[in-house]
Every structure is written in C-alpha cells, then in structure tokens.
C-alpha cells in the first residue's frame, strides 16, 4: 500500500483529495470545496469531512507501518468523529497522528481544519486492526 502516497484510493480521488504537505512524516490531505462535498448550502457535509479524516488516518497508519518496515494490511474497527465547527466553502486539510502502533492494533487521531490548524472543524478517533501479510 505504499501506493497511497502517489495514488489515493478511488473514493479520495472522486472527492478531489490530494496530498498537499507532510507533518511529522504523516501526509496532509487537502480537499477542495465543491457541490459533491456540500451538506446544507455553503457548508461541508459531515460525511465528506469524515471521509477526509479517514483518508488522512489511513495514510498516517501506512506511513507509520512503513517506517517500521512492515507491509501489513489494516482493517478499520471503528471511528468516532467529533464535529466542532461548520466546514465552510473553502479548502479543508486533514492529517492523522498514530498515537499508538502495536503489533495487533493502531490508535489514530485525525484532525481536519481550514484556515487555522489550531481551530479544528472535526476530529476523528480511529482503531485499526493490523493484519500481517505473512505470519511468523
């Protein structure tokens, strides 16, 4: 899945997400405002914000795994999204932080913001199961 850097998954591409930067080794994903991500007029749909958080979280876990030399696959177990501010009709960014990477699971926090990273519009808290490709 090292392809994630160069090729984001179809869902991310459909919403025009791109890797725009890197923070502490984790890719920052950007998503422009468009009708396809709009909820009520002029605001982002919570599901599209969640999608941006998801792509940032997955990218962060893959990056953390690669840094450890692991080629394991991941499987999402759950997610909690806190919506803190309305997403306005502008560019939105998200980055994931792997708060713990164990042998069987990873805890990730993803943050989405617009103009100011210190004023997140949403935070996602995810658990991923780590599934080794080859056992032992």
């Amino acid at each position: 899945m090292s392809a994630l850097y160069t090729t984001l998954p179809p869902y991310a591409r459909a919403l025009d997400m791109t890797v725009v930067d890197e923070i502490d080794g984790a890719p920052v994903i950007g998503m422009p405002f468009a009708n396809r991500v709009q909820g009520r007029p002029g605001f982002l749909h919570g599901g599209a914000i969640s999608g941006l958080l998801e792509i940032a979280a997955i990218a962060a876990v893959h990056q953390a795994l690669r840094a450890k030399g692991s080629d394991a696959n991941i499987k999402q177990v759950n997610v909690t999204v806190d919506f803190m501010r309305g997403g306005l009709s502008q560019m939105t960014f998200a980055v994931g932080e792997v708060t713990r990477l164990g042998r069987t699971m990873a805890n990730v926090e993803a943050r989405a913001w617009q103009e100011d990273r210190d004023k997140p519009i949403a935070m996602g808290y995810m658990h991923y199961l780590i599934k080794a490709k080859r056992e032992g």
Binding site: P9, Y11, G47, S50, G51, E54
Partner: peptide, 16 residues
Amino acid sequence: VADPETGILASAVIIS
C-alpha cells in the same frame, strides 16, 4: 471504494 484490491467501500460512505 477505499481499497481497490477488495472493492470495500470507504468507511466514510457508511458515515454519510
């Protein structure tokens, strides 16, 4: 789709 290898939908589709 979030994972082209399996065709599994992005989890955010379920969230939406």
